[in-house]
Design a protein around this nucleic acid. Structure first.
Lengths: 189, 189
DNA sequence: GTCTATAAACTGATAGAC
DNA sequence: GTCTATCAGTTTATAGAC
């Protein structure tokens, strides 16, 4: 079998298009052409575009949870965990893409309610995970407590989302810079 | 006269729609309905959608330059200047919108070349201005030199752009948080 | 400057055959 | 699961009258 099942391939292409062009700049026709079926066939897998978007965010979030588990399992220090988290965004930067979530969040008012909520949950979860890692680092003395962990976490997520947007517009890597500045603000000196 | 000229009104509505819904989610029909003319009439003012977008970025950038001049004229300390700069984004946050530039940058691959370049110039200019304020603050001893001014500036712009996206998705203010964390990283302690 | 009229292409979506 | 056929609505855009 040269290909995974059609639904997965549709999600793959849809995700790539949204991360490069935005939610309202891809169509069923784009997907149909890309994988070699007709637009009507896509409706068998995803009755509406909103359904496709929701399925996409569900998959994206599930992948995040797997990565977070892996990071908690493999990284030893809290700093390593944050670095591993930031590396997740690094893949996207190399593809000259932005976060699926950031792209959808930018077009927020055009999304169906369930899709909006899926985006919100992803960002909330990301922030809470980062916040927890910072808390632990402060508790163990690895990090300095220069602010509320949840505020620092929100600032990091913002920096990463915005960093991907800037990196592509300015044609130069941003995540390394964001990482350095952020970790410095946690350093014990 | 109850209204400014039609071209300006078209730009006003287009900007609002792009900042709330994204570049590919507004149409000439939306604008026509909003200001009470026909779609064909819009082409008199802006032959193509790309032309409208470019004119919009030109106006947006010109407004930025005016604001930067005002800030340099009125704010005394470098910290006050940075705070005033961040306040420019605060207006957008209150409207539950994102930066025009950030919205366009998110849909980057669908933009005409001139429009892409206009977006890039705006972000570059913003970063360079912030970088210069940080440099001055370091030179005068107002700020601690904990990193390259251009990196710190890029991090702030990223945080602001991403902060607007997060604020809307999470339904809570982000810019105040981003400001606090950022200024702390410049503090002399 | 704005209108009517019109165009060609695209949009997400449905019905029903295979 | 995928197809053909078809839909109604939308999109950006042009020609030419007023």
């Amino acid at each position: 079998m040269p290909h995974p099942d059609t639904a997965e391939r549709l999600l793959d292409h849809a995700q790539s298009l949204i991360q490069r062009r935005g939610y309202n700049a891809f169509s069923y026709k784009d997907l149909a052409t890309a994988i070699g079926i007709r637009t009507a066939s896509i409706h068998y897998h995803f009755p509406s575009k909103g359904d496709l978007g929701t399925a996409l965010m569900q998959r994206y979030h599930a992948q995040l949870e797997l990565e977070l588990e892996r990071i908690e399992r493999t990284a030893k220090t809290q700093q390593q965990r944050l670095e591993s988290f930031i590396k997740l965004y690094g893949k996207t930067e190399k593809q000259h893409a932005i976060c699926l979530c950031g792209s959808l969040a930018a077009d927020r008012e055009t999304l169906s309610q369930p899709l909006q909520e899926a985006v919100d949950r992803y960002l909330k979860r990301s922030q809470e995970w980062v916040s927890q890692q910072i808390q632990r680092g402060i508790a163990s003395g690895e990090f300095a407590a220069r602010g509320e962990p949840r505020d620092l976490a929100a600032t990091l997520i913002s920096g990463l989302q915005g960093g991907l947007i800037l990196a592509r517009a300015r044609s130069r890597p941003m995540l390394q810079v964001v990482e350095r500045v952020f970790l410095q603000s946690l350093a014990t000196d």
